[in-house]
């Protein structure tokens, strides 16, 4: 099906790729502006390679502070139907791990928005752990989040992934013990990513009521490392609620849903709307979203 696919040809501007702003700088900037960081997610290669590059640029131009760039995988078992669909489409279009780094290099030619690569371990193993850790930094990535490498599951591997400067972003679930959170914060790099509920990615109509309290509890153990929240955030109203308590807000499936309906312009509009509600002491967030929520 996807045998031997190596993605699009390297883009011509790869030699000029910049390295991008550091995650620490980015959060410091947001803090100074008294707002949460907006972190949109995009599956690389969705809807295809060139268009995902345009979407990345559009997200950055519309005010994204950090972008999570998904490396497509055939068996995305932490993802709901929306991101599964986008992954399969990307793979069918020939996107690959190398192709994802190519898109990142091309993005870096004009943007310094920090990028966290988001994916699953197997494509990285196949690429070569050390080779990938080096290539991702060279392509301009700041961080790496592997959903199937929980903290401490493979210490030697984790050390090798971080050896060249990639921040290994840790997921914290509602089921994670306080002791684990403390350990992750101690080893933590970049930021901690709190999953808003037990489950897979995908838009939800409602966030859980206990979320604010849980985020506060994680922040108390985070030792100053920024805590962002994701999974299920699908409307500006929800994003505003989360921005009030977290250092950053991740929006993924809802953006891909929006892209499916309204294309690149819709994505840019949506990112701008989300960015507008990141401010903590800014204008009141809209009471309801402009679109009905889409339960995943």
């Amino acid at each position: 099906m996807w045998h031997g696919c190596r993605g699009p040809k390297p883009m011509s501007d790869r030699v000029h790729a910049g390295t991008g702003m550091s995650l620490a700088q980015c959060f410091a900037g947001c803090r100074a502006e008294r707002r949460a960081a907006l972190i949109p997610f995009l599956t690389c290669g969705y809807p295809d390679g060139p268009q995902s590059l345009e979407l990345l640029r559009g997200m950055a131009d519309a005010g994204a502070d950090i972008i999570e760039l998904g490396i497509p995988f055939s068996d995305p078992l932490a993802d709901g139907p929306t991101i599964q669909r986008s992954s399969f489409r990307a793979l069918e279009g020939g996107m690959s791990t190398e192709g994802t780094l190519d898109v990142l290099r091309a993005f870096r030619a004009g943007h310094d928005t920090p990028v966290v690569l988001f994916g699953y371990l197997n494509p990285i193993l196949r690429y070569g752990v050390d080779e990938f850790a080096r290539a991702a930094i060279e392509a301009g990535a700041q961080g790496l989040l592997l959903t199937d490498v929980p903290a401490g599951s493979d210490p030697v591997l984790e050390k090798r992934l971080a050896a060249h400067g990639l921040a290994l972003i840790r997921l914290i679930a509602p089921t994670t013990s306080p002791e684990r959170i403390t350990v992750m914060a101690g080893a933590g790099a970049g930021f901690l990513y709190y999953i808003s509920r037990t489950g897979i990615t995908g838009a939800r109509a409602q966030l859980r009521r206990a979320l604010g309290r849980e985020v506060e509890a994680v922040k108390r153990r985070a030792g100053g490392i920024p805590v962002v929240v994701g999974f299920g955030i699908s409307t500006p109203a929800q994003a505003a609620d989360v921005a009030a308590v977290a250092d950053g807000v991740v929006v993924g499936s809802a953006l891909i849903d929006r892209c499916e309906r309204d294309g690149a312009e819709g994505v840019q509009e949506f990112v701008a709307a989300l960015r507008g509600v990141m401010q903590r002491d800014g204008p009141d967030p809209p009471a309801t979203s402009s679109r009905p929520p889409h339960p995943g």
Binding site: M1, G4, C5, L77, L121, N122, R126, Y127
Partner: peptide, 22 residues
Amino acid sequence: TPGVLHGSLSYLLQDADGQVAP
């Protein structure tokens, strides 16, 4: 070749990009 699927490292059918082969 060795790879990770469904929570463990073991031999696996996969392509050159690490996508699991049918």
